[in-house]
Amino acid sequence: MRPVKEAALLLAIAFTCSVAAFFVHPKAPSFRASGLDRDLSAILALPEVFWVDARSDDDYEKAHFEGAILLNEDRWEELIVGFLDAWSPDATTVIYCSSAACPRSHEVAARLKSELEIENVLVLEGGWEALVEAGLVEEADE
């Protein structure tokens, strides 16, 4: 039992330090991913949406949300041309990637904001998984 008790003590020390760091560390992360995340119901309530698929080329080829344009960091320079051709400034640009744990949609959103100065950008909370769960798309066969 001694190793477990000692491990519990170490965990308690580390936990206390990490809680303190959360409040005082200048580079402490926030529990809110960004101000960009919106759930599916909020996105569907928008009057006009321009969908962007930030997953890999393979995933996009297998299946994607109807009307979504592929834009990922792997082939940014090539894909941005197609994005700009199709993009509508009146619509809200909504980006999704594979799941809630996928960071790609935030990376694409950050680049659209910083490089193209597109302000009306949101990220779909839950990504592709949220679209599948809602029955708006079908899970692609492997």
């Binding site: 170490l10 965990l11 020390i13 580390a14 936990f15 330090c17 990490s18 809680v19 760091a21 959360f22 560390h25 402490a28 992360p29 926030s30 529990f31």
Partner: peptide
């Protein structure tokens, strides 16, 4: 977020 704060202190301990 929890892991990013907890793991470094755990590693130091």
């Amino acid at each position: 977020v929890v892991a990013s704060l907890l793991v470094p202190y755990l590693e130091v301990c």
